[in-house]
Nucleic acid binder design. Structure first.
Lengths: 142, 142
DNA sequence: AATAAATTGCAACTGTGTTGCAAAAGTATA
DNA sequence: TATACTTTTGCAACACAGTTGCAATTTATT
């Protein structure tokens, strides 16, 4: 139901006090379509190169600022983004779930149902956020 | 005791079947000196720009391949390296400890004594490696 | 000390992300 | 719905990170 997604996207943008533009709608559509994390290059590919690199960078930054998406840690220079299903507010991102990176297909998924465990750090460390990135073989590639 | 470090470094390189060069020794010295993670720019600064960018890239890649250092996941485009105190073998890195990123001083430390917890992922996921990156305020900045 | 093998430095290149500014699109108002 | 105002977009240019090929240097071997 694409029309339902459009409504959802419109609401999402409105509630974040962002104007509704073609680029923003399209990028959010791509996020909703793919259930994994996306990186910058994906948007250029998936959108059919219809909009400028710079616009994509700025749109993703805007979404980050508004708490619509969050970044996922990687060990290379790529930056991966995933849509926040919940919990994220403006300038305050808490991704209290595990991220999974498949070594076969290369996709990164948010495991919403898997809570991050409680850690006991040495004395003197003040914990604000915990990121867990698991790598291995995903459901589909198994 | 710098002479003791030199011996240690020589042994480390020999056991990895790497020839002992000025660059490699100096980079390993920097790793042993700093008890946190380093990124490429740090080596240029700390070494006093005495060697080429390309050499640093290649040296770090060699150390990665041999399991002497490992990468730490980040949410930006920077790549952070830490020396492996144990457990890492050639082409097989298992960093079974937590990494801590201080939001005040910007340093990244390996918390060797803090084991990563056991996770229960949904069925169908084959776990090979788990990375835990905690951010907050470190001991020194507290 | 001489030779073979590996490493380094240089130059050039690719790719990623940023900034300023003018044109275009979106929003609000009458 | 036409108008003025604001925001966003696209372009050009730039800055910086990381890579590759090759010749010169350094390290290991005999």
């Amino acid at each position: 139901m694409p029309s339902k997604n459009k409504e959802l996207i419109t609401e999402l943008l409105k509630s974040s006090k962002l104007s509704i533009t073609e680029t923003r709608v399209k990028i959010l559509e791509l996020f909703l379509k793919s259930n994994g994390a996306l990186e910058h290059a994906d948007f250029e590919k998936l959108s059919g190169k219809s909009f400028d690199r710079v616009t994509i960078y700025r749109t993703l930054q805007t979404f980050l600022d508004k708490g619509i998406v969050h970044k996922i840690p990687t060990t290379d220079t790529s930056v991966r983004y995933a849509i926040c299903r919940s919990e994220c507010r403006e300038h305050e991102h808490h991704d209290h779930h595990v991220h999974f990176r498949c070594e076969e297909c290369g996709s990164t998924q948010c495991l919403e149902e898997t809570d991050i465990p409680v850690l006991s750090l040495p004395k003197g460390y003040d914990v604000r956020n915990v990121e867990v990135v698991v790598s291995g073989v995903c459901k589909a590639c198994h």
